[in-house]
């Protein structure tokens, strides 16, 4: 759910960029540390960024009958971890702006915050919590992907409500307005993306259980479930 180029006022664009900067620095630091131990991860992350970019261009059928593009927030967080998703998300969002004119440079910070920080961390956190409660793998994957998506939309709604408060209802009125619009359009998409992510993980378990087992968020219990 991108905010388009120039849509946010200068103060908001700058503020979200500043808010996203420590996460980018932390993500880069985490990758650098990882690369010293496993140099082969350099190629993996670059290829993962290309995978996320091309995945976001696919048309996803929505449960309401319309279609949209998957965000890949949940799947990316499950496959590569939320820390890696910050720099990977930065590259993907930058490329979407530069190659597709989707999103923008002034709104990169705000889009990064919702799609590459909040979404992946919520998805990974829910997945870990679900596995800790010994819930079935498919339920954990669905909840992580669908609610990670929803968290992204809620963050975008907050960003827009903050930038454009309602003349009568203020921030709360505006948040209710954007929330109501997103509830109609994005909840069906989040459900679709949750289902899609379950299908992807099921296919990976069937054909590539070994690779899946090596992922930090899966491991022994994930592969056996």
């Amino acid at each position: 759910m991108h905010i388009m180029e120039g849509f946010l006022p200068f103060e908001h664009a700058l503020g979200w960029t500043i808010a996203a900067t420590p996460f980018i620095a932390w993500g880069l630091q985490s990758i650098k540390k990882h690369l010293r131990e496993k140099p082969e991860q350099r190629m993996l992350l670059g290829v993962a960024a290309a995978f996320s970019f091309t995945l976001s261009a696919l048309k996803l059928p929505s449960v309401t009958g319309s279609c949209s593009h998957p965000t890949g927030v949940g799947l990316g967080a499950l496959l590569f971890g939320p820390a890696a998703m910050v720099p990977v998300g930065l590259v993907v969002l930058l490329f979407q702006a530069l190659l597709l004119a989707h999103g923008g440079l002034t709104t990169l910070g705000a889009n990064l915050f919702s799609m590459a920080i909040v979404g992946p961390f919520v998805a990974a956190g829910l997945f870990r919590a679900g596995r800790a409660l010994a819930l079935p793998l498919s339920a954990c994957v669905f909840a992580a992907a669908a609610l990670g998506d929803l968290a992204t939309y809620v963050t975008t709604a907050i960003q827009l409500a903050w930038a454009f408060p309602d003349p009568a209802g203020g921030f709360a009125g505006s948040l209710a307005k954007f929330g109501a619009i997103f509830a109609i359009t994005q909840i069906p998409l989040a459900i679709s993306e949750g289902l899609l992510t379950v299908l992807v993980v099921n296919a990976l378990r069937r054909f590539n259980a070994d690779e899946l087992q090596k992922l930090p968020l899966f491991g022994q219990r994930g592969a056996k479930a």
């Binding site: 290309a50 720099p87 490329f95």
Partner: peptide, 8 residues
């Protein structure tokens, strides 16, 4: 990441 992403 950008170079690899662009190529892939």
């Amino acid at each position: 990441l950008m170079v690899l992403c662009y190529r892939m």
